[in-house]
């Protein structure tokens, strides 16, 4: 579990996060949603420890991040998996090397065992016949699968995804969302996803935090979104005609 209390972050004189407090539960897909520029990525990077906040605390399993020494932070980071928006695969390595990288880097596991474990996660994310391909030779959807495989190979306790389905077609986006949710439940990981994709919100949003101008304006589940009268989240979610219709249908069905 990750707890965030009164987190604030500013760049120059502008606050991009204002006293955000929340918690992310184990075994659930926790979503951070909001418009572009709402502070989602900064929030995620603060949780990851890539940005230091001005005030507030991030607590990993009852241990505050700010109180951890360099060794504890390194250990924590090896317990994290991250899927970046652009996948962030290493260009000079093929798919197999990319996935095996954390194991080669941080463990003394024998090369045959690393290969076996790599093949297990490759199968788990349904990557077929791609082991020896370079990132430039595979599609966007496959890159995301490689990034997910790399993120889970060390069996992390925390999985972070920054807009995991951006740039993907709707069908592939849903497949990637479902894959993340399945992995979260299977490995009992605390997953935090940063997104503004409404399909993801509806499909896998077991817990949702809505940010607007750096402030937390709403918190709940994907089912609660249909019933909320919070103006900020309603304006964001129901900005498209499609979702307005979905809301009406949902309201009718639940009368």
């Amino acid at each position: 579990m990750i707890e965030v209390t009164k987190l604030s972050k500013k760049f120059d004189d502008t606050y991009v996060l204002k006293e955000v407090s929340t918690y992310f539960e184990k075994g659930k897909t926790n979503l951070i949603i909001g418009q572009s520029g709402s502070g989602k990525t900064v929030f995620l990077k603060c949780i990851l420890g890539l940005f230091s906040p001005e005030s507030g605390e991030i607590i990993y399993n009852k241990t505050p991040l700010s109180k951890m020494n360099s060794k504890e932070r390194t250990k924590l980071r090896q317990d994290m998996g991250m899927v970046f928006q652009g996948s962030a695969l290493f260009d000079s390595m093929n798919v197999e090397e990319n996935i095996a990288f954390p194991m080669k880097m941080f463990t003394n596991t024998h090369i045959d065992e690393i290969r076996d474990r790599t093949n297990i996660v490759i199968k788990r994310v349904n990557l077929i016949n791609a082991n020896n391909k370079l990132p430039s030779e595979i599609s966007g959807g496959m890159k995301k699968r490689v990034a997910i495989a790399r993120a889970i190979i060390m069996h992390p306790n925390y999985l972070f995804c920054d807009e995991p389905n951006s740039g993907l077609d709707p069908n592939t986006a849903i497949i990637i969302d479902n894959l993340i949710q399945e992995i979260t439940q299977e490995y009992q990981i605390t997953t935090v996803i940063n997104t503004h994709d409404m399909n993801s919100v509806m499909e896998i949003g077991e817990k949702i935090i809505f940010l607007e101008s750096g402030e937390k304006k709403w918190e709940g589940t994907n089912k609660e979104i249909f019933n909320t009268d919070n103006k900020s989240i309603s304006n964001f979610v129901y900005s498209s005609e499609l979702f307005k219709k979905v809301r009406k249908i949902y309201a009718k069905e639940n009368k």
Binding site: Q78, M82, P102
Partner: peptide, 10 residues
């Protein structure tokens, strides 16, 4: 973001 990816890994 490859450098960020390395940093996140520790």
């Amino acid at each position: 973001e490859q450098i960020d990816a390395l940093e996140v890994m520790g």
